[in-house]
Design a protein around this nucleic acid. Sequence first.
DNA 1: CTACAAATTGCCTGTTGTGCAATAATTCTC
DNA 2: GAGAATTATTGCACAACAGGCAATTTGTAG
Lengths: 205, 205
Amino acid sequence: MMSKQSLRELKKEATGHALADAAFELAIDRGLDGFTVDDIVQRAVYSRRTFANHFSCKEEAVATAALTFKSTKEAEDLIGDMSENTPLLDMLYHMMKMQMTADHFWKMRKLVSLSRRNPTLVPYILSALQRLKKSAQQILTELSHGRYSNEHIHLLVGAVYGAIQPLYDGSLDVSLPGESASETSEAISYEQYVDTIFNYLRNGF
Amino acid sequence: MMSKQSLRELKKEATGHALADAAFELAIDRGLDGFTVDDIVQRAVYSRRTFANHFSCKEEAVATAALTFKSTKEAEDLIGDMSENTPLLDMLYHMMKMQMTADHFWKMRKLVSLSRRNPTLVPYILSALQRLKKSAQQILTELSHGRYSNEHIHLLVGAVYGAIQPLYDGSLDVSLPGESASETSEAISYEQYVDTIFNYLRNGF
DNA sequence: CTACAAATTGCCTGTTGTGCAATAATTCTC
DNA sequence: GAGAATTATTGCACAACAGGCAATTTGTAG
């Protein structure tokens, strides 16, 4: 079903994750300007040249660490229990719900706070979000065995990810499950927002 | 209605556009790797330091040149003749239609072709598209005088721009007005695609 | 006209990107 | 399982880049 991973590919991905994680950790406790690529590779024990083989800059590494599935298994977990012929919209809704883990929220929160202080991050956040989108898209394509056209899937997934983007790029303030919704004045509940999105998409605007 | 521009601001924007345009031109006839920041500032007759004051790298300049309104007037032209109490969805549809000029198509086409050869561009394309989105959003917010919540506008505009994104980041092949739709095997008509988007958003998926 | 604010510039230095060639690790073929 | 082919990692070297600082020019305000 899924692409099989050669040992070589697994190792390559592992070094990528190691580098990205190191970058993310450094960013969290020193800020984006508080460290260099050399610091990253020193922490992850790789060469600077290798870092450049995986990422174009530290911003890309940081965003990737926060918004990437670490394994195909992690991506497949989004599927959970879905019957083969669930409608496309329901499948996507299901996957979005499965994505809402405490870990995901925590990383998102950190990422947004970093990007607020340093807008250089934003392009790479959008780019990482796009990779998440493509994962979802690919899963849906496989799962729906030709019931929907490529164009249709692109369109729907694009609309959903476009609508949640403001939560990730910092244009909207989010409140998370643990927090009371009225704590921050203008903050929006992540889960309610997603529900709203799907309500509109289901019934039209 | 719109924010008035001091002479100083106008001049600053002008140098920004001059630099961005120079970068875009160079990218078109030498490719993204075929020139340096020095080449850009030499062509636009500014200092390298000034370039850094406006853009973080040449990719950002290139994407900005292709996907930015050069003046507030150009942005306001999108409004055209719209009555004050047009429904939000209709206003947005109208604006998307107004955006479809030959010039816009041409720039988009060039941008996509550049990003295909050099994926480094992609994050900055997404970022530039986000700026376009924000312009649209701001216009709609002003134009709809509190008839819709901030959240609602964010959501709708996000969905639309998310859905058209594949046309700009190169994940879908586009055919343009001049070309026959069946010329390229898998190519999609830009205008038909947008119409499809709005059909779905109107009536639900 | 004068004082103020902001944009542009040059200079400088630490940081970064990348081609090339060498090495080490994995995969393939027989 | 041994040797050949592929690919990831690394070091080196050098051009390109980012950003702080201070000086200068140019627009703004009173």
